[in-house]
């Protein structure tokens, strides 16, 4: 079956920042996105836990698949936005079946 090369960007960021990050990827041309909750984790910046009544320690993950030409502007803008915050950013090559959706 015919597949098409795309970039998958994954961001693990603080919950409070997620609305701004979602807006950013949409402004930069992403046609869709998925936000998933996280249970717990740890990075060089420290540990996080699931969001509870005190939301400041939680993190969420944003998954977005875009055309390679759109990936760079998103990453540059996201890098600037997240400079002062705890965040992890992953970039990977993926194949999709329905090109027009991404």
């Amino acid at each position: 079956m015919q597949t098409y090369a795309k970039k998958k960007l994954e961001f693990v960021v603080e919950t409070a920042l997620m609305p701004r990050l979602v807006r950013l990827v949409e402004e930069q041309g992403a046609k869709g996105f998925t936000v998933v909750p996280t249970q717990a984790g740890e990075s060089v910046d420290g540990a996080w836990q699931r969001d509870d009544i005190a939301p400041a320690l939680g993190a969420q993950m944003l998954i977005v698949v875009v055309d390679p030409a759109v990936a760079d502007p998103i990453l540059e803008a996201a890098y600037a936005l997240l400079a002062d915050y705890r965040a992890q950013i992953f970039v990977s090559d993926v194949e999709v079946l329905r090109q027009d959706r991404f």
Binding site: A16, L17, G46, I53, A54, P55, A56, L57, D84, R86
Partner: peptide, 21 residues
């Protein structure tokens, strides 16, 4: 421990929530 931590994370990222929460 609800409203302020969220606002501080947005506005003062250099302050560690592991301290104030």
């Amino acid at each position: 421990y609800i409203a302020v931590p969220a606002a501080m994370r947005l506005a003062l990222p250099k302050a560690n929530p592991g301290l104030y929460v």
